[in-house]
């Protein structure tokens, strides 16, 4: 019977359950969520793909200037933020977006494009 008082107190209070899809809490600053990639900043060094413990990052077109983009396999990702930590230019970052559920397996792969730096383009032509 030791709980009787607490039970009555709780019965009068609002339930602590959050009705999730309708009510949401703001994620705390610094939550490790979905990736963003800033193509302009990337120098194509490929460090992120090398340190990734889950092999979740794939460089499209190889390392260096010929790299055309990046695939991030969200299904494999551990959200450890090591890629962000090693990136010398801050091109890949984790946002606080935590809603990652998708209906198709293809949607589990984030495909980012990297435009080659525009200054170099005229030289090639």
């Amino acid at each position: 019977m030791a709980m009787a008082k607490e039970l009555l107190k709780n019965a009068r209070e609002k339930p602590c359950t959050l009705l999730y899809p309708f009510e949401k809490t703001a994620p705390p600053e610094g939550l490790r969520g979905k990736h963003v990639f800033v193509g302009e900043k990337c120098i194509g060094c490929g460090l992120c793909a090398r340190v990734c413990p889950a092999f979740a990052i794939e460089l499209l077109g190889g390392r260096g200037p010929k790299m055309s983009g990046m695939k991030v396999y969200l299904g494999r990702c551990l959200f450890c933020q090591q890629c962000e930590e090693v990136c010398p230019t801050g091109a890949i970052k984790l946002t606080t977006d935590y809603e990652l559920a998708v209906l198709k397996q293809e949607d589990m792969v984030l495909v980012f494009e990297r435009k080659p730096p525009e200054a170099k383009q005229p030289k090639k032509e």
Partner: peptide, 10 residues
């Protein structure tokens, strides 16, 4: 419903 409210659930 009653038990849930006692346990602070919905």
């Amino acid at each position: 419903k009653f038990v849930a409210r006692l346990q602070n659930r919905v």
